[in-house]
């Protein structure tokens, strides 16, 4: 067991993947000498060279487009998009090419490309640096979309994403980069498959369904609720496409109430998909409608307002109260 931050866990995971497979490449803006603006790739270029850790020109479509070409040649590129709000120039390559080329080829082509995206707010940043664009990608068939929430998962999930023969959009909770926890780097027996969720806190009264940066918020809310005599179960979805439906349904059938929590806008977001599926599959078990807590139907606000925009412990507990009011 080693105590490490989430960013260090990602770094160690990528390092291990690069040691295991010489075809694994890192690509992105400032990922070389600087080690990335969040230092997630720190030291990798020094140890693996400029051919394997590539500082690219500043064009996101170019990063994904050339990564596709490298994958066609047998490489396994791991692309860093510097911030969530900068992924959109690459959206065309991700949606029209990365996601669809394997099917277009009738299976002749595999595109093992990972697109790492630091996501979410809460760091006092300027515009375009605090967004949660996961729903754009979960809506696109052909992509796997995952989100890590803690150092151990960061370490295992980045390696699983790199090993996957499918394209993976990999969301990293940027405000949790510096949070530390134990990571077992010696053994892989504890790894949870990348396409499975996890019950990170068992409970009996309400299920909180969440991912990425909101997992910690939900755990804190569950702790506070316990002090008020309510037992909240927290599910870290981990995989956003596909969703781990059996895990979600099992939890909701047990508790009878579900609250989805994410930073992204509630309107037409991931929570809507979960609410619809839960309603369909758990209708007779529900004590209340599925409720959603998330961002407003506004652009992400200036940072002096973000504490009002982002779901926090009180907003989560407010939704729990509303779930009990039915």
């Amino acid at each position: 067991m080693t105590v490490m931050s989430l960013s260090k866990a990602l770094n160690e995971g990528m390092r291990k993947a690069m040691e295991d497979d010489p075809k694994v490449l890192i690509m992105g803006e400032d990922v070389g000498k600087l080690g990335g603006v969040f230092r997630v790739t720190d030291g990798l270029q020094k140890d693996f060279g400029e051919d394997r850790v590539i500082d690219t020109p500043l064009a996101e479509s170019g990063i994904i487009g050339t990564a596709i070409g490298l994958a066609l040649r047998g490489y396994r590129p791991v692309c860093e998009i510097q911030f969530d709000g900068f992924v959109f120039p690459a959206a065309d390559q991700i949606i029209t090419q990365l996601a669809k080329m394997p099917m277009r080829s009738l299976g002749a082509i595999k595109l093992p490309v990972v697109v790492r995206i630091p996501c979410g707010g809460g760091i006092g940043a300027v515009e375009h640096h605090s967004e949660s664009p996961e729903a754009y990608f979960t809506h696109t068939a052909g992509l796997r979309v995952v989100a890590c929430s803690n150092p151990a998962d960061a370490y295992s999930m980045i390696q699983q994403a790199i090993r996957s023969d499918d394209p993976v959009i990999f969301f990293e909770p940027k405000r949790r980069y510096w949070e530390k926890a134990d990571v077992d780097t010696a053994d892989t027996g504890w790894w949870t498959p990348m396409d499975k969720g996890l019950v990170v806190r068992p409970g009996t009264d309400v299920t909180l369904l969440t991912h990425g940066p909101m997992v910690k918020t939900c755990l804190e809310a569950a702790q506070a609720a316990e002090e008020e005599g309510r037992s909240l179960e927290v599910v870290d979805l981990r995989s956003l496409n596909p969703l781990d439906q059996p895990l979600v349904m099992e939890s909701v059938r047990k508790t009878g109430r579900a609250v989805v929590v994410h930073e992204a806008p509630v309107n037409q977001g991931l929570g809507a998909e979960l609410a619809a599926r839960i309603t369909e599959q758990c209708f007779y078990h529900l004590e209340s409608p599925v409720l959603r807590v998330g961002g407003f139907s506004t652009p992400y606000p200036p940072s002096k307002l973000e504490e009002h925009y982002l779901p926090d412990l009180d907003r989560v507990l407010d939704a729990v109260d509303r779930a009990f009011a039915y």
Binding site: D51, G65, T66, A67, G69, R73, Q97, R104
Partner: peptide, 25 residues
Amino acid sequence: FHLYTIVIGSQTLHAVGYAMGIQRD
């Protein structure tokens, strides 16, 4: 010979990436 690409110009980046792979090989 890669598959036909319908979105205009997308394949130019794939080709350059592939060429970067040739360099590495």
